[in-house]
C-alpha cells in the first residue's frame, strides 16, 4: 500500500447546489490551509441543477481526506469524492496562437501539429489558433515546440475528470431528497470503508 504521507495529484469532485458565493466558500477551505489549487473547474453535472467542481491539488492523502470532509460539511455541498489520476479519465484543453506567415512557411509545423493531434480553430492572415486536448504533458510538449515558431499566446483550461468507478449522481440525489435517506447516500465513503480507514 502506498504511503498516505506521500504527496501526489488528487482529483477532488464536489457536487453542489448552484449558489452564488459557494465558489468562495469552497476556495477558502484550501487557502486557509495554504494549499495551492492546481486547477479548478466548475460546470453542470449529469443532474440538472446540480453543479460539479473538479479541483486538482498536489497533496498527501491524509490532508486531502480532511479537506474533503471539511468541504462536504458545507451546507450547499452534497458530496465530495477524491481520486488519484489512475482513478479518473481526465482531459485539459489548450489553445495556441501562432503567426500564420511563420507556420505557412514551415512544412514541419504541419507535421508537428499532426503529431500532437492539434486542430486549427481559426486561420487568419495574421495568426492561426490551434487547439489540443489531452493530459498536461501533451499540451505542455506542444508549447515547447511552438515557442520556436513565434508562439504569441498560450492558454490551458482547467482539468475536467470523470470518475471511472462512479455510477453518477442521479440515484444519489434522489436519496438526498428523501427526508430519511437510505444508507448508500447517507454517508461518507469513509464509514463504508471503515476497515481500510480505521485500523484497530
Amino acid at each position: 500500500m502506498e504511503s498516505k504521507l506521500e504527496k501526489k495529484e488528487f482529483n477532488i469532485t464536489v457536487y453542489t447546489e448552484n449558489q452564488v458565493g459557494l465558489l468562495s466558500r469552497i476556495a477558502i477551505i484550501f487557502s486557509r490551509r495554504k494549499l495551492n489549487i492546481e486547477s479548478l473547474n466548475t460546470s453542470p453535472s449529469e443532474v440538472e441543477s446540480i453543479h460539479r467542481f473538479n479541483i486538482v491539488i498536489n497533496e498527501t492523502e491524509e490532508v486531502v481526506r480532511k479537506v474533503a470532509r471539511q468541504l462536504e460539511k458545507q451546507v450547499e455541498v452534497l458530496k465530495v469524492y477524491y481520486n488519484t489520476n489512475e482513478d479518473v479519465i481526465w482531459q485539459e484543453l489548450a489553445l495556441y496562437k501562432v503567426p500564420t506567415e511563420i507556420i505557412a512557411e514551415h512544412v514541419s509545423v504541419e507535421r508537428l501539429l499532426r503529431e500532437y493531434g492539434a486542430r486549427a480553430v481559426v486561420i487568419r492572415k495574421d495568426y492561426t489558433v490551434f487547439e489540443t486536448t489531452g493530459h498536461r504533458e501533451e499540451t505542455d510538449a506542444l508549447v515547447v515546440v511552438l515557442q520556436q515558431y513565434g508562439l504569441i499566446e498560450f492558454v490551458r483550461s482547467a482539468r475536467v475528470a470523470i470518475i471511472k468507478a462512479s455510477d453518477g449522481f442521479h440515484t444519489k440525489l434522489k436519496q438526498f431528497e428523501n427526508r430519511e435517506p437510505g444508507e448508500p447516500a447517507a454517508e461518507n465513503e469513509y464509514l463504508n470503508n471503515g476497515d481500510k480507514v480505521f485500523t484497530m
Binding site: T16, E17, V75, E76, V77, L78, L173, F176, E177, P181, E183, A186, E187, N188, L191, G194
Partner: peptide, 14 residues
C-alpha cells in the same frame, strides 16, 4: 435541506 445532512446515520457496527 437536501444538501445538508445535520446528523449522520448511526452505524451499529461501530
Amino acid at each position: 435541506i437536501r444538501s445538508y445532512r445535520p446528523t449522520p446515520i448511526i452505524r451499529n457496527n461501530y
